[in-house]
Design a protein around this nucleic acid. Structure first.
Lengths: 394, 394
DNA sequence: GGATTAGCTCAACTGTATTGAATTATCAAG
DNA sequence: CTTGATAATTCAATACAGTTGAGCTAATCC
């Protein structure tokens, strides 16, 4: 995703403070309600340091005091929680034919959504559309510009020149500078650019089934099929930002090996339905067809589970995640059906007796998943610190 | 690998210094020879800070001055390089029937190797064997205990209870505490525990074809087949330490779907040869059979490339690595042959026009690969800092 | 009601990195 | 061959952030 390779930098007082702020914020988010002493224990900082940072965060309005709790003995703890209105993140999803935007508060709750059909062909279109949508969504929620944490932008991958046809490549905006940097210049705000699957994955971490999870995978139904992988709390984007092109995985099906997304994806389903004379343009249409046990849909589902099962077991083998989430532009009932009916191999690293999460689960679905995810990327950054402890030092 | 989930900790003066030392060391390792000013520019630290750290590292004997270079104008830069004898890492590989050990210097060059056949059944066996081998290898190289950076231990995965049969699980040493912590107690040294594929992957980073690479994958021929993935300079171990169980991937072959390692692995080759009446117990035997164009071997190779190709394209799809390295307990000539003959899909994210590394390459091979890798894990830790810069802050 | 416990604050202290001026050694130009 | 420009390096002072230990406070336990 065209991140400028996260370079590793030296630490100094200022950067340490920034990091520690994020550590503390992350703990608060994770615990919902927590006191200073507990944060200190969990983060390896002194209570005093945590106290100072808490004071900062209060002053910045990012957190609020949330009552006292008399634990066992001792002075009752003053608890803190995120201030939902302490900051807002804009999420923008760009597709060749439409653009949508979302505004999320610090807790990851949506406070505004917009969607607009429009053709986007070049860089100027993108810049204008993104700017307009950002303004629209911010104004409709009545949020001040200064409360914006940043903008997350989602475009379908793969990014750059690859051996895969199709995708956003055709927007032809990847040529010289990275979209991340020029969008950041245009918007005068921090910008994160990701593909839809990765954004959806982070969305589940910020406010969804992946809350508290460290390592998981998200199989995303877009036009094709994408995979977002979070490992130790961080997105795994691949050397060139195109990891997780799971749609192009070769899987066995009735007619030999096919690309996974030819068997399992929104597009493959739409095509199958159309071949049988059914039309479904929205997620709701599909949901209805499923409720009515449309034979064409049922047959597609029957054909889809085997390839999907192969993909799931591949992901389990290679990533050993805590869970695999299914989500995206599909109705809940279909996703739930897939979660229930996809056979899981017994001979898998994931088939461990002591699991605390199901091997497969359903995530956020619907049209706006990726857009919400775009904003979630920004919220997530506020909570993800930079330091990873290593076992020991030299 | 049963790493205690790298928890994220707060930064303070001491930890910042530790981190910065590693940043500086990492730069020196990467550049081979480098001056303070350049390190400062590359790491985002002031020259003064780098100067102080360099003084520290010199005092600790980890680096040495390596001549002056009169660049264009100005004062000639005083250059520094790693001191090969500045520290040593012990690597130990445990198998059910044998144990081997290696000693690597700071530059990643082997200075001692040992191998011993012995049955290892329980924890006491492991503790004794590891201790003995460590002593043996350290004494044979005449290195002082105080120069030891740590011990890397490699055991074949998968770790813990999974749905996979076989593997080191049967050593039954995983029950209560993690081997990492009790071995560390026994040896009174920092210990890293990893599986063979991951160790081999890191070995290539420390002194091999992956030097300077950020994200790559290593397909490791052990008894079965393993995958080690390095992403942004760090090992990707999976939530439970069992990522990369690529051998259990279901791939298409002549007789339907099979586990990859039933078609491509040392064991599968040995079996194929035995079925045709040939015996090959060592890597050298295999190399000779290959040179003599043994028909049984040739036929196995012909059958192996298709499944291997499927695995390679799966890895490309899901990880988008800079390169995929083939290595392990196979002779160079066979690995080279596989690198050349394995078909690579055109429709892959990895098929980019601007590649600077081949999609497939050969890594270190032979019996000791994993043992060397075990030690490389320790060396690598000395160079891998804890802070990952994030695009921006809140 | 006194002892104990635990959260929290205050103030002094410490460790690191930064800053800006001074020093040194080389190259390039006159 | 001298002079000025250039860049690496060091020195000394400063700033920043976290730590430490004493002291305060408000609960629970006995």
């Amino acid at each position: 995703m065209i991140t400028q390779s996260d370079s590793i930098v030296g630490a100094n007082a200022g950067r340490s403070r920034g990091h520690n702020r994020q550590v503390v914020l992350g703990r608060i988010q994770n615990a919902v309600k927590i006191g200073r002493a507990e944060i200190a224990r969990a983060s390896g900082l002194s209570t005093q340091a945590v106290s100072n940072i808490i004071a900062d965060l209060l002053a910045d309005g990012l957190i609020v005091e949330k009552g006292y709790r008399a634990a066992s003995r001792g002075l009752p703890v003053a608890q803190y929680a995120l201030n939902p209105d302490g900051g807002f993140a804009v999420g923008i999803e760009i597709r060749p034919d439409a653009i949508s935007a979302a505004l999320l508060n610090l807790c990851g709750e949506p406070v505004a959504l917009k969607r607009k059909k429009m053709a986007i062909r070049n860089r100027a279109d993108v810049a204008r559309a993104v700017g307009d949508m950002k303004t629209a969504v911010v104004e409709s929620a009545g949020v001040s510009e200064s409360a914006l944490l940043g903008v997350g932008v989602v475009m379908p991958g793969p990014f750059g020149k690859t051996g895969l046809r199709g995708g956003a490549t055709e927007l032809a905006i990847w040529d010289d500078t990275s979209p991340q940097s020029w969008l950041s210049d245009v918007l005068e705000l921090p910008v994160v650019v990701e593909n839809d699957a990765n954004a959806a994955a982070i969305s589940e971490k910020v406010s969804g089934v992946a809350q508290g999870l460290e390592s998981y995978a998200y199989i995303y139904f877009g036009a094709g099929l994408g995979l977002g992988v979070v490992h130790k709390g961080r997105l795994m984007a691949g050397a060139f930002g195109n990891a997780g092109e799971i749609g192009h995985l070769r899987v066995p099906s009735d007619n030999g090996l096919v690309a996974l997304q030819d068997a399992v994806s929104r597009l493959s389903l739409t095509r199958a339905l159309r071949a049988d004379g059914f039309e479904a343009t929205s997620v709701e249409d599909l949901s209805q067809l499923f409720r009515r046990e449309n034979p064409s849909l049922v047959s597609w589902l029957e054909r889809a589970v085997e390839p999907l099962s192969a993909a799931v077991s591949t992901v389990e083998c290679l990533f050993d995640p805590q869970t695999i989430i299914l989500g995206g532009a599909m109705p809940d009932n279909i996703l739930d059906h897939l979660v229930c009916t996809t056979p899981l191999l017994d001979s898998s690293v994931s088939n461990r007796p002591d699991r605390s999460f199901p091997r497969l689960s359903r995530g956020t679905s619907g049209r706006m998943t990726a857009t919400l995810g775009a904003a979630a990327l920004v919220v997530n950054q506020a909570f993800t610190p930079k330091i990873v402890q290593q076992p020991q030092e030299v």
